[in-house]
Nucleic acid binder design. Structure first.
Lengths: 346, 346
DNA sequence: CTCCAAAATAATAGCGCTGCTATCTAGCCG
DNA sequence: CGGCTAGATAGCAGCGCTATTATTTTGGAG
């Protein structure tokens, strides 16, 4: 048949492509591509006419095409338990700011403290051929580890340090936090200690703080320490509730550390209602240094984890690895430490 | 010449592709692709052998290739002022949960309250050919609007409702919040009203609440209302500071509304220190119903914005639009309302 | 049995960009 | 001034998948 088959009606995208830009700038697509990837390799004259063409056409690059061709994208995937949690929100925000400077995008995933979901999130993340993957904590399923190893994507584990890491890590030792809280209370002359924790069965890091707390306390002669917990997520209400239980079970308690500041604030509120003097009769130490902690009455002694620093350093490690891959893995484990802020409640 | 040029040594990805799966399942790549996109169109026998092949090869699809071919991705981009802000963190989390059910991924961008940055974020977002874009608030630059219009990507504006929306919107009217706070205080017999606000110059929504507050109050005979503000981000410390200024400038104030609960908590703390009885001498109303608001002492009367509902509904609108595009735009503007929670502080 | 529509599967032609190479140009030395 | 080299620019061949069309297989009806 002379008549050619009707041409395929593939959606003929009217999208502006790199070729349109090249045509307008009277250069080849290669050069335009180079302009984006290695601006220095393009002459000033070419750069200028390309910039003009981009401007005129309002060109928006297609990062998916670029990622496909380059077999890797400018996306960093991060998996956190929850952004509802101020700690991780802080880290996510700081990290994004840092990554943004290098025009790296962030894709976010939540486990909502269900560790089992992590594998699925990692799978999805890998579908985007990310430049790096950031995971919270150190405990990951075998399948997750294998996926990541096979993919060869750089991995950063954040918010927790331990004996072994998959690749890179930024965080601190949670047992040391417990240790610091216990030491501080003991130093303040407290002998009957309690750790009040929310959701310790799911929040492993909080559990490690609790463990570090009692281990430290019990090593010191004449000191007692127990853990009281509640399965619900941390909130001031849970804190108030936990204090009630604490006073019921251990009436002579005089030093309390909390899994976080929400719990501690609840303890303070409840003590106000019950007429319990803080710190005279009871010392309270929190964890988190949340927005209200310095302003409460009494102000709250607490341990401040450097959430923003963690985000920033994680971003830096990633940038160092993927952008300046020339040098060798300088430092791949960063201990950010934490700070005990001694205020009125202890 | 006879000798063929040496074959290009293109990085021969050892990645498992859809072709490997097809080969192993003894089917064509097309069928495997169909299996992912329209599982019902594939026979049970084929489905099973494909599933087995995927399992055996540990196949991870390349979403960038898919997105490129389909000219659209399963990514939803969301731009919020900051995830450090609990309101938006809540929305982001809820939205992600809802989107996740449809295997839609979320890409996050922050403006950090710099509206000027929005355009860049939208540009980057569009580079990923997202299935939809979610923006916070209603005020966007002309360039941003044009970019979005040209791209034809569905847009959802959240957390604010007003006279006109670009496409879809989910939120509530902030002036109504101010109105509700003022009405409530008046109803509680308060006549000398103040609105304490943080960062009103950047946080337009808070500014609208303030505006609604004074407009309502001033319409009522015998009532006075003023706004006092501080340029720093909201925190309990700023709240305490603002109360100081308030008492200095308006010693007989007896009703205070705050731009959010952090400020209100600071007011409560400061009143405790100063020995000002709440609510006897001073009524306080917050905004946000943050984690500590119900537990504080006195508990805080506040207005609760449905952050999670906003996220959920926004996700639903998006899903309805892109997945079941058959039906016509049912409802594209959703007023989620808000709730005044009357507690002890008023 | 044959025929035919419906169901299932396969073939084809890109999506828009990048990573090599190859080619071209300008600058500089002897 | 020819010959070289480094610096710019261009050409080519996919990246891994999807949408569309084409083909084959099924399963009844006649």
């Amino acid at each position: 048949m002379a008549a050619p088959k009707p041409t395929r009606t593939r959606r003929k995208m009217q999208r502006v492509t790199i070729m349109d830009v090249a045509a307008r700038a009277e250069l080849s697509p290669s050069t335009v591509s180079l302009y984006f990837r290695k601006p220095d390799a393009v002459s000033a004259a070419a750069s200028e006419s390309i910039a003009r063409a981009i401007e005129a056409l309002d060109y928006v690059p297609n990062l998916m095409a670029g990622g496909l061709a380059a077999a890797s994208s400018r996306v960093v995937s991060i998996v956190v338990p929850s952004v509802r949690n101020a700690f991780f929100a802080e880290t996510v925000a700081a990290m994004q700011e840092e990554l943004g400077k290098q025009r790296l995008q962030m894709m976010l995933g939540h486990t909502e403290y269900k560790e089992h979901d992590e594998e699925g999130l990692v799978r999805t993340a890998l579908s985007w051929a990310p430049a790096a993957i950031v995971l919270t904590g150190l405990s990951h399923s075998v399948a997750t580890r294998r996926l990541l190893r096979d993919s060869k994507v750089p991995v950063v584990e954040i918010w927790e340090l331990g004996s072994q890491t998959m690749d890179m890590a930024v965080g601190f030792h949670h047992d040391q936090v417990g240790h610091a809280a216990a030491s501080h209370l003991v130093q303040r002359g407290r002998k009957r200690l309690l750790f009040l924790g929310a959701r310790l069965h799911e929040d492993r890091r909080a559990a490690r703080r609790a463990q570090g707390f009692v281990e430290t306390a019990r090593k010191i002669p004449d000191i007692t320490a127990e853990i009281i917990q509640h399965p619900a997520p941390a909130s001031a209400e849970v804190g108030a509730m936990l204090l009630g239980e604490a006073l019921h079970r251990f009436p002579n308690v005089n030093g309390i550390a909390c899994s976080n500041d929400h719990i501690a604030l609840g303890v303070i509120f409840e003590c106000q209602r019950l007429g319990i003097a803080i710190p005279d009769r009871l010392s309270v130490v929190g964890f988190g240094d949340l927005s209200f902690s310095a302003a409460s009455n009494p102000s709250l002694t607490t341990i401040r984890p450097p959430g923003d620093l963690i985000g920033k350093e994680a971003a830096r490690l990633i940038i160092a690895r993927i952008l300046h891959s020339d040098g060798e893995p300088a430092q791949t484990v960063i201990d950010t430490r934490f700070t005990l802020l001694h205020r009125q409640s202890s």
